[in-house]
Nucleic acid binder design. Structure first.
Lengths: 236, 236
DNA sequence: GAAGGTATCAACCAGAAGGTTGATATAGGG
DNA sequence: CCCTATATCAACCTTCTGGTTGATACCTTC
């Protein structure tokens, strides 16, 4: 577990931002979301675009369990990278199933396309693109574009992970032997986020974040988040 | 005032550290100190080496006024860069004057050599090197070495100010039109220092630091020191 | 000399962050 | 099977930070 994780998914904060901008800028979607997949295969670090906070909360609280596009469904299928919901689930099912009846449909969503990014066959990030009932149905052409974008994002991801900035982050984390979750905390700290945001980013409690921070502080020998950010960018 | 100061002395935190290490490592001194000179020609951002905190406090509280090597004595004399106290002040004076009788001598100091760094003829940093009464008197050879080191430090300073890292700092400060003192605060924030340390570094009260921070927060549109550090190293 | 920018400091408050202890659960190695 | 490492969370307390208001002083510039 540690082995697979000491590179991913930490260090991808701005990568997510840029990808989301790209997708929503090029494709005709009404809402979008992105997340990273942690070592326990749990989606964390959600970032959304024009997606109602209440809808996201509903998903996180309840409906993620029923999601046919949930990343856990695709961790093993390394060949699947772009999935269209309405292709995966037939029309009848979409009428019967509570996921569509009680969640997808009420929020005015017509279809969802999910993009997965992998490194070494391991799923590490995902993107959900929503079209609304007011929009025209998604066509082959749109899916082709999505595949095109996916391909470039996959390329860009590998570049990002090889960049000096990223390796600097790795050097720091390796130097102090931080655990995967601790690395994620450091990543979010380095973005200047308050603990509350870090907690919601990692989908855990404030208490857990504080515990992680305490461990990071002891390992690195500092005593504030600002100092962490400073250390990170002033490696000796 | 603004004009002369929007480059210096901010951004020299690690430069000071390295210089102090160099001087104390190469020259045979018992204590040392370094400082930056701000726009009001006041020494700030002291860093010391083997110098008793109590001695430093005494100097800062009282004796700085009597110091014949005090930087204000040399702001105008752009040709003077390395000064030896015992050459500047004759033996008799050193017996009579309270600065030596009540401060220098009681702390076991035999001689002091001061080095000044300038940019555009403006004094921006100083180094004080102390020899103790237990050490042999400083000779011509030592002064030659000090001059040699000074020359390189002067070169290195110019390099540092031209380095990408420094210009990044400048870009940030210019972008948000920060005042000289605000820039100093940002510099110390970027080192991860708590407000109390920033206050003592700038030789002002905690309240002043907080006011500076509030202004920086409004100008940059953030609301925490960690975010400042993050912004600084993640310029868009 | 009035106005604006800068630098200084005080007092106050609410909320965030840091520090500690202790507890639970789970995965993996020996 | 036990031990360790990891991840999770709660409760508590202290200290630090952020936000606000208001005041003084100095220096330019108009």
């Amino acid at each position: 577990m540690q082995k697979n994780d000491n590179i991913y998914p930490a260090g991808l904060y701005s990568f997510q931002d840029e990808c989301l901008k790209l997708l929503t800028g090029v494709l005709n979607v009404s809402k979008a979301a992105t997340y990273l997949v942690d070592s326990q295969r749990k989606p964390i670090c959600y970032k959304t675009w024009q997606l109602q906070p209440a809808m996201h909360r509903q998903y996180m609280d309840t409906f993620y369990k029923l999601d046919p596009l949930h990343p856990t469904q695709f961790v093993e299928q390394a060949d699947i990278s772009v999935v269209k919901m309405n292709d995966l689930v037939n029309t009848q099912e979409r009428y019967d199933h509570p996921y569509y009846r009680d969640f997808v449909s009420p929020w005015g969503v017509q279809d969802i396309v999910e993009l997965f990014l992998r490194v070494d066959n391991q799923l590490i990030a995902g993107f959900a693109l929503f079209t609304s009932k007011q929009q025209p149905e998604m066509r082959m052409e749109d899916i082709r574009k999505a595949n095109q974008l996916h391909q470039f994002m996959q390329f860009s991801l590998e570049q990002s992970l090889a960049a000096p900035k990223h390796s600097q982050f790795q050097v720091f984390c390796d130097q102090y032997q931080l655990t995967p979750k601790e690395r994620m905390v450091v990543e979010l700290v380095s973005q200047g986020l308050p603990n509350k945001s870090i907690a919601s980013g990692l989908d855990c409690s404030l208490a857990t974040v504080k515990t992680h921070l305490q461990h990071i502080f002891t390992k690195t020998g500092v005593n504030s988040k600002t100092e962490i950010a400073s250390l990170l960018y002033n490696l000796h």
